[in-house]
Nucleic acid binder design. Structure first.
Lengths: 201, 201
DNA sequence: TTTCGACCAAAAAAGTTTTATGGTCTAAAA
DNA sequence: TTTTAGACCATAAAACTTTTTTGGTCGAAA
């Protein structure tokens, strides 16, 4: 027997699931609340019983995608032993997942940054940046703890993590846009290798 | 006595100079051919005697700015002795010049990428990228030649140069937008230091 | 408590009119 | 012969108006 609270939670989850599918099918900006309501067989105002606003639904979908991406990253990182292996795994896995999301949502690479900056809320962007910087920081901390990264023991790991995060995303952006200097995978691996060497000293 | 050809060249140069000043004063998109013509005291169709189109004038102004920026970079690099000193000088000087241009043209940092991608011609963007990659490659070549950079002797320097260029510009973009992880100068120096350590191995 | 049709206000889209602008032409001036 | 510019064209952009869409609310019914 399903409780009232469970039924409500099921409907809330269904709204997000359906919204996500519609976003993928029609694009992030084309989907209306009416679309979502029809797709789950309810009236539009019903959505406002379960969610405060369209933005709340949109943010929840985005957060779910990000959480999914971060989960994949953590799973992949868990299978790498050393800090340097983890850094390489990080850049490659992130690139792979980005390609998948781009294909799934039928986006152009050019549009990723525009969507990210203009439509994702500041809170989500901040949270994502903080989380990514934190993942890199954990890798760096492991490198310091295992004496693999001797070159940064005197540095602020938050700042180092941020610098690496930014550099990596610069590579992602440039090489996804144009692979005239070789495949994106090779480029991010090369950066990872140089960075690792730099961290080890 | 000034020859006809010299007079023509003077007028061509004056058109560019005035166009540049107007772009700085009113923004890259607001200036009309009529504006430029009035500012040099001629009729609009006169401009078309000296230039093929507005785009040709715009491109010439942009190319002049880029040439100016690259000249400053080269001057600064010439004063650094070692490859690692040159890399650090490169990232710091580039950052400084970008701040100057942003102030001069009254731009927002957010708009730099948008202008660069949407308004600068593909040819100019390609040329600029190639030139920047080449400058970095020369630094890397010097590092290899002086045995300062032992870690990349087996690599394709074009690709390494591109990877560094992209990573550096990722840092520039992120830290110019938000200095929550410390001043942009510190961040680019930190990246430079880590990269240099990585290149040395 | 949950649902929804009717409704509202504002935004977005579509359509129309007016103005601006890149560019050309041809004749006049130098 | 070279340089210049006013008039003009076609298109784009801007401004304005009308229509449609959409996020969100309300109150009543289930």
């Amino acid at each position: 027997m399903v409780t009232k609270a469970q039924k409500e939670e099921q409907l809330r989850a269904k709204v997000l699931k359906v919204a996500q599918q519609l976003f993928q099918q029609y694009g992030l900006q084309k989907v209306t609340m009416d679309d979502v309501a029809r797709a789950i067989g309810k009236g539009k105002s019903t959505l406002y019983y379960y969610y405060k606003s369209k933005e709340e639904i949109f943010d929840a979908v985005v957060e779910h995608e990000i959480k999914d991406m971060l989960a994949h990253l953590r799973t992949a990182l868990a299978q790498a032993d050393t800090a340097s292996a983890k850094l390489e795994t990080f850049v490659l896995t992130k690139l792979r997942i980005m390609r998948q999301k781009v294909a799934l949502y039928n986006l152009l690479y050019e549009d990723i940054t525009r969507h990210y900056v203009q439509e994702f809320s500041e809170r989500i962007r901040q949270h994502y940046l903080q989380t990514e910087v934190l993942m890199i920081k954990e890798i760096l901390q492991l490198g310091v703890d295992t004496a693999e990264f001797k070159g940064i023991t005197d540095l602020n790991l938050d700042q180092v993590a941020f610098v690496l995060t930014s550099g990596i995303s610069g590579i992602e952006q440039h090489t996804l846009l144009s692979e005239q200097f070789g495949p994106a995978e090779e480029n991010v691996k090369l950066l990872s290798r140089i960075l690792v060497q730099g961290l080890k000293r």
